[in-house]
Amino acid sequence: MPTLTLHDAVGAALAEEMRRDSTVIAFGEGIATKRRELAEEFGTRRIRNTPLSEGIIAGTAAGAAAGGLRPVADLLFAPFLCYAMDELVNSAGKLRYISGGQFRFPLVTLAMTGAGWGVGAQHNHNVEAWFVHSPGLKVVMPSTPADAKGLLKAAIRDDNPVVFLLDIGLLYQPGEVPDDEVLVPLGQAATLRPGNDVSLISYGKTVHHCVQAAETLAAEGVSAEVIDLRSLKPLDTSAILATTRKTGRVVIVHEANRLCGVGAEIAALIAEEAFSALKAPVLRLGGPDAPVPASFPLEQATVPQADAIAAAARRLCAARYA
């Protein structure tokens, strides 16, 4: 299998889908500059840069989707989605329902998120929970190049709007990507490492921190299972409940603010559906309720690291609850 970065895997998925389906178009903030090979192959009618106006970009995508196209809109940094909330949440997310199913809205919104580049608070804000909470939208956040390619292809073919978040810290990390066509279904988690003592559930870059923690724990005789959610909405509730019932101990990890984050929904799901299987309370590790610093060391301090995850797992496995 060839080795690609996550950035290049996204480009490969776009190219394959644009060749397969003439209704797939791409536009946004610098997309034709970042992906010159696509601009050269498909021309400015199908891939182009836009002005820096997120609301207009998202509104154009919603209109293009309603008109029969499959647009991919690049809004660059996730906090810029604030300027496109009405178009994505109030229009694209709701109009299929409001129209009684007469319209489809097959659009994908790309945005970079997370720590790794020291871009400061106005460019680094993990906002995925906002869109998980928005009816009609799907939300995806891959942790590997192979999943980025397979999930993006599935998202482009989906008849609903998908917010597709790319973790900045993973953007240029290489990984093996299947050469043939492989679609990763939305709503299907992956078990990256089997285990019996404790479950580590995560998405994005903290998945890799969980894998590192699991390796450390294994050397201490603790068997940790690592679950990569990949898709936040739809959420693979079956995988979450299965790993909970298997190990009885769960640590949920994400970089986004811990308060009202995706981890809170997962913890509630476990409490409602698998409480009797728990051997210890569910733990959540997340970012602080504070803007993210531009300083690289301080920025990294906002992200749950492997040592903190391993320590949380040790606490669960060592504790004895009546």
Rank of each mutant, 00 (worst) to 15 (best):
R45S: 08
V89P: 09
S295A: 09
N124V: 07
A214C: 12
A146E: 07
G136K: 11
G187W: 00
L69H: 11
A239P: 03
G59Y: 03
Q122P: 05
E87V: 00
D289H: 08
F275Q: 00
K233D: 02
T3K: 04
V182G: 14
V24Y: 02
A78D: 13
S199P: 07
R36K: 15
P297Q: 07
L4E: 02
M1L: 08
H209N: 13
E37S: 08
E16Y: 01
V163P: 02
A39G: 14
S143L: 02
Q122W: 13
H208V: 13
G221A: 09
A146P: 04
F105C: 15
F105M: 11
P51E: 11
D86K: 06
V253G: 14
G175D: 02
Y203M: 00
S143P: 00
K153D: 00
A15N: 11
S22P: 00
L151K: 06
A322K: 08
L316Q: 00
G28I: 11
Q122A: 10
E255W: 06
G28V: 12
V177Q: 06
A15H: 15
R96M: 15
I309M: 10
E181D: 12
G261E: 10
H209T: 09
L4P: 07
V163S: 08
G55P: 12
V292T: 15
M18K: 01
G136S: 10
E181F: 14
T191Q: 13
V162R: 06
P194Q: 13
K205M: 01
V251I: 04
I240V: 14
S199W: 05
K246M: 07
R104V: 13
N124F: 05
A115K: 03
E87F: 00
T302F: 03
G43S: 01
L81D: 01
P194V: 09
S231W: 06
K205T: 06
T33R: 15
R258G: 04
Q173R: 11
I252W: 13
L192D: 05
V24F: 01
D86Y: 02
L192H: 07
F77T: 12
L38V: 02
P178C: 03
Q305K: 03
R157T: 00
T44E: 11
R20K: 12
K246H: 03
D236N: 03
N49W: 06
L186F: 04
A61M: 00
H123F: 01
A312P: 02
A154V: 00
L229K: 01
R104D: 15
S91W: 10
L166E: 07
A146Q: 03
Q102W: 15
A242K: 00
A311Q: 09
L235N: 10
L283H: 04
L283Q: 12
I156W: 05
L95Y: 15
C210W: 10
I57K: 03
G204N: 04
L192I: 05
T302H: 06
N126I: 05
E176V: 06
F131W: 06
A271W: 08
G204C: 03
G100Y: 13
D74Q: 07
W117D: 05
V10G: 10
G116V: 04
T191Y: 12
V251L: 10
N90M: 05
